[in-house]
Design a protein around this nucleic acid. Structure first.
Lengths: 359, 359
DNA sequence: CCCAATGATGAATCTGTAA
DNA sequence: GTTACAGATTCATCATTGG
C-alpha cells in the first residue's frame, strides 16, 4: 500500500490504525488526550470563567483505563512504523509519565525528552502552585539498537544560530490568526498546537517525502506542517467537525522550497535575571547588606530575594523606591554591595550570572 | 521520636527508611539512581560492568526491577510523610516516567513537574540527538484532596521579580568551588546537584524547622541547603565515602540567622479582621457611606458591620458582588471611603487595625 | 493613521475556615 | 462528613475601541 501525499481518515483511532499495513510509516506524531482531572469551575481574578478542557474525549475512569488506551494505540503505531521510524508524543504531567512508561514497555527506545517552554502560558490564578509553563514531548526510536533513526543535526544547528539544538524549546502558544476559529468565532479545537512546534519536530526527524502519521489529527496542525515541509501525511480523527476544519486549512497551505526552510531564526534578547537568582547563586547571601550609591542607607538581603529596611520589605525596586520616596527605582543600579574595590552596583552580579548563562 | 537538626544515617535506603516512624517528615527530596542500562544490582553505584541488554525481554526485566525498587523506597517515604507533607523527585528521561507512574500509583498527587534548564549542559558530542539540557523534578502531595501542602507562593514570586514562579527553572550545573572533590582532586560524586536547586526546592515547599528527608543523600547537598535555610534534615546514604564528604561539608555550613529567614508571607496568613471591627473601632460610623472605586455607586454602613444598598443588605463582599452582578467580590478592595486625598479602599482601614493589633 | 486604553484568552488536576 | 461564606488571586499576547 502506497500513500498519497495527503490522507485524512475520519474514524476511531485504534480501529483505523489496525487497517494500516506493517512498516509503512516513517514518523508518528501523537497528541493524545491528557486525562486532565479537573475539579469545578475555575474563576480568574476578574471573575471570568476559564474555558476548561472538559470534552468527553478527555475523560477516563482510572489510570488503568488510560494506560490500556495508551497501550492500544501505541502498539498499533509501533507496528505500522518502519524499522528506522520514530515516534513523538506530547503530554503534560497528567499523562506523560503513563505514556512514557507504556512506550518503554512496548520496546520503544527514548532518544530525548523535549520541553516545550511556553512564552505565554496561562498563569496559576489562585497562587497554589508553580505556573504550569511547559509541556513535554518524548522522541523515541522504534527499538534499541535497531536501524538508524533520522536526525537532521545540521538543520537543527542551523536553525539555532549555529549552536547545537537543546532539549528545551521556547515557543509561544497557538493564538491569533493561526488559531482555527469555528463559525461562532470561538476556537474550533480546545488544544490546537502551534505549527512552529510541528515544524521543528518534522524538520528535525524526517526527510522530504516521508510519511508522517498523526493518530489524533484534530484540526490538522501536523498535516499543515507536513505539507508545508514537503512530507506526506496520514491523519486520523474521530470528530467530523475537526476533519472539516483540517481539510479546509491544509488546502490553503502552500509548500515551501527547501532552500526557504531557514525561517526559524532565533533572536536572543538579554535573559531576565531575577534578583532571587543572585541569592541562589550565592553571590549574595541572606543576611548580607546592600547599600545605596553613597553608602548612607542600607538594606538586608533575605532568602527569597526580597530586601528589608526595618519593617519595610519588598523587591529591590520597591524598597529602593520607598526609601527614596520616589514612585519607581531601578534596584539593579541603586543598590550596591561591598567589593574589594569599594561599593559596586549589584548589576555587576547580574552580568556575572548572565555571562554564566551564556557560556 | 523527635529528630535532631542533623541526622545522617549510613545504610541501605529501604532498610533504614523502614526504621523511621510514620508521619514524622515534612518534605522528602529524592535523587534516586537511574542506571537502567545496568542489569542486576540497581542500587550499586560503582558501575561494575554488565553486558549490554539488547533483548526486549531483558529490557522489560530491567524496567520491572527498577519499578520494584522505586515502589519500595517511595512507599516507605510516603509512610513516613506527614499528611500535609510532600515529595520531590528528580530524574531524567531514563527513569522519570517510571518514577512518575509509580508515584501516581501509590496515591501521590502530582502538583507540578518542574524543569531544571541547565545553562551549561554537556553537549551531545556525536550529534545524534538534541543536547540533553534539562532534568525533570516532580513535586507531589501525599494524596489527592488531603491536608494542605506547604507552598510559599509569595516568596517564590518575590524571588522571581514579582512575577509568579514558573515550572521551568534556569540554573547552572554544580561546578567549580561548589563541586566536592575527593583526595585525588576528582569529583567526589558523579551527579552532585547544585545547592541553588535545593535552595529553591526547600524555600518553596517547607518552613523553617521542618524535617526534610533525603533517602539518597550522596555528598549531602540537601543537608547543606537545609542547614543553611534553618530546616532539620535526615539523610540516608549507603557509601561511607559519600557520608564522610557530606559530614565535613555540612559542618562548614553557617546557618542563616532566623531573622533573615523570613520571607514574604501571604495575605491569607494575616489575621482575619471582620468589617464590624472597623466600625467598632470608630474608623467608620454607622450611617457613613462607602463608594465603589469610581464613586458612582454607594452603600450605607450599618452598626453590625453589614452594608445596605436600598433593600439589599449583607456583608461587604456579598453586597459588592450583588451590585456588580458578579459571582464574587472582595469587599475590602471594592468599597472606598472618602479621605482627605479622595477615595481610598477600606482595606487601608483594615491595615490600620492590623498594625494596632500587632503593636 | 498612530498610540493608548481596554478587553479577551490560553491543556488548569487552582482556597481556607468555621460552624 | 457538609455547607456557608470570607476574601485572595494572573502573565503574555493579540484584538478591539477610542481619541
Amino acid at each position: 500500500m502506497a500513500f498519497g501525499p495527503e490522507t485524512i481518515i475520519q474514524g476511531d483511532c485504534i480501529e483505523e490504525l489496525k487497517k494500516l499495513p506493517d512498516g509503512s510509516v516513517d514518523l508518528v506524531f501523537a497528541d493524545p488526550p491528557y486525562n486532565l482531572q479537573l475539579g469545578g469551575d475555575l474563576l480568574r481574578p476578574d471573575n471570568s470563567k476559564v474555558d476548561a478542557v472538559d470534552d468527553h474525549w478527555d475523560q477516563f475512569e482510572s489510570f488503568k483505563a488510560y494506560d490500556d488506551f495508551t497501550r492500544a494505540w501505541m502498539a498499533e503505531c509501533r507496528r505500522v512504523l518502519k524499522d528506522d521510524g520514530a515516534l513523538w508524543v506530547i503530554g503534560s504531567y497528567h499523562n506523560i509519565f503513563r505514556v512514557g512508561t507504556v512506550l518503554q514497555d512496548l520496546g520503544f527506545w527514548v532518544l530525548n525528552d523535549v520541553i516545550w517552554r511556553k512564552t505565554n502560558p496561562m498563569p496559576n490564578f489562585k497562587g497554589t502552585r508553580f505556573a504550569n509553563a511547559h509541556e513535554t514531548l518524548i522522541w523515541a526510536a522504534k527499538s534499541r539498537g535497531g536501524k538508524r533513526y533520522t536526525f537532521n543535526y545540521d538543520a537543527m544547528k542551523m536553525a539555532n544560530d549555529e549552536v547545537q539544538m537543546r532539549s528545551d524549546w521556547t515557543l509561544p502558544l497557538c493564538t491569533g490568526e493561526e488559531r482555527i476559529k469555528g463559525a461562532d468565532g470561538h476556537k474550533a479545537h480546545p488544544t490546537q498546537k502551534p505549527e512552529a512546534l510541528l515544524h521543528r519536530v518534522i524538520l528535525s526527524s524526517s526527510r522530504p517525502g516521508d510519511v508522517i502519521l498523526d493518530p489524533f489529527f484534530g484540526v490538522g496542525t501536523t498535516g499543515a506542517a507536513a505539507k508545508r515541509l514537503g512530507r506526506r501525511f496520514i491523519g486520523i480523527e474521530r470528530e467530523s467537525e475537526y476533519v472539516a476544519h483540517a481539510k479546509e486549512r491544509i488546502r490553503k497551505v502552500v509548500p515551501i522550497a527547501p532552500a526557504d526552510l531557514e525561517v526559524m531564526g532565533s533572536k536572543k534578547s538579554e535573559p531576565r535575571v531575577p534578583f532571587g537568582t543572585i541569592v541562589e547563586a550565592g553571590l549574595l547571601r541572606p543576611g548580607d547588606t546592600v547599600w545605596c550609591p553613597k553608602g548612607q542607607r542600607s538594606a538586608k538581603v533575605r532568602a527569597d530575594g526580597s530586601l528589608a529596611v526595618g519593617e519595610m520589605t519588598g523587591s529591590i525596586h520597591k524598597v529602593g523606591a520607598m526609601i527614596q520616596s520616589q514612585p519607581a527605582c531601578n534596584g539593579w543600579t541603586y543598590w550596591h554591595f561591598k567589593s574589594d574595590k569599594g561599593l559596586a552596583p549589584i548589576d555587576v552580579l547580574r552580568s556575572k550570572v548572565r555571562a554564566e548563562m551564556a557560556a
